[in-house]
């Protein structure tokens, strides 16, 4: 069967600095994979490149999504094809209320007011929607807002950059359950969405059943395996072991 995502020998630079150095990577439909790696390894750059941010300049290689070459497509086009991104640190959009964005996304994607109400209730975010997008949001509120937007956007494939960063333990559970729901993992008959998740702490693995883990070092994927085994190994020996293994 055709892969949902296929990345072939991807080289990317940001302002002249090489951040990805020949990434080969693929994922099947509905797969949930996890990216591990030290700070500065290129994980976020990889996600931003998959989403098509122009700052991340593709020097070489190709990105295929659902069999189509999307290397030259812009962010909007990729989003319309079914890629969504939960930002690690989303920007504040002053003067534009979260409510306005909710209305726009739900209208664009055929989501009823009742469905929106349920999502807001589950994410415990209703009291914040009058505020400007991400304006003064705590870490947990920001992540819940990101997941909310993705639920309204209904992408087929979700990129989630560090869902635990800046989030307290109580909110991690809430965000974790929400991601599980977003990916359709909490109900047998829900449509399944693919996801690539960057995690440092691995807390998210307590809530989301990941299929495969990858280790990203120095702008490349260097190995893959069972995500829980990998996390345990990283916790024991850090990434030094990976370099030896490599």
């Amino acid at each position: 069967m055709q892969e949902m995502l296929q990345v072939v020998d991807l080289w990317v630079s940001v302002e002249g600095k090489q951040v990805l150095k020949g990434v080969d990577f693929s994922m099947g439909y509905g797969d949930v994979n996890v990216l591990f790696g030290p700070n500065g390894a290129g994980k976020t750059s990889f996600m931003m490149s998959l989403m098509g941010f122009p700052k991340y300049k593709v020097d070489q290689g190709k990105i295929f999504f659902k069999g189509e070459d999307v290397t030259d497509k812009d962010i909007y086009e990729r989003s319309k094809m079914g890629i969504g991104l939960s930002f690690q640190r989303p920007p504040t959009v002053g003067g534009v209320s979260l409510e306005r964005l909710i209305n726009l996304l739900s209208k664009n994607n055929g989501i009823s007011e009742e469905e929106v109400e349920v999502i807001l209730e589950n994410l415990k975010i209703k009291e914040h929607i009058k505020r400007s997008i991400n304006d003064g949001f705590s870490g947990g509120e920001m992540k819940r807002s990101e997941i909310l937007q993705l639920m309204l956007q209904k992408p087929e494939f979700v990129l989630i950059d560090e869902p635990e960063s800046g989030v307290d333990m109580e909110n991690i559970a809430l965000v974790g359950h929400a991601i599980n729901h977003l990916l359709g993992k909490d109900k047998v008959r829900s449509p399944k969405r693919g996801a690539l998740i960057i995690t440092h702490t691995g807390y998210i693995l307590d809530f989301v059943n990941a299929d495969k883990g990858y280790i990203f070092i120095n702008g490349r994927v260097i190995c893959s395996g069972n995500p829980r085994d990998m996390l345990n190994e990283i916790k024991r020996n850090g990434y030094k072991g990976c370099q030896v293994c490599q």
Binding site: M51, P90, P91, G95, L104
Partner: peptide
């Protein structure tokens, strides 16, 4: 950054600029 953020939500560039500018003046 704000424009690209909204584009990643499936909002086209012109609409994203309009939304942000309206917000700026709001």
């Amino acid at each position: 950054e704000q424009v690209e953020y909204l584009m990643s939500r499936g909002i086209n560039k012109d609409d994203a600029v309009s939304l942000i500018t309206t917000g700026f003046l709001n």
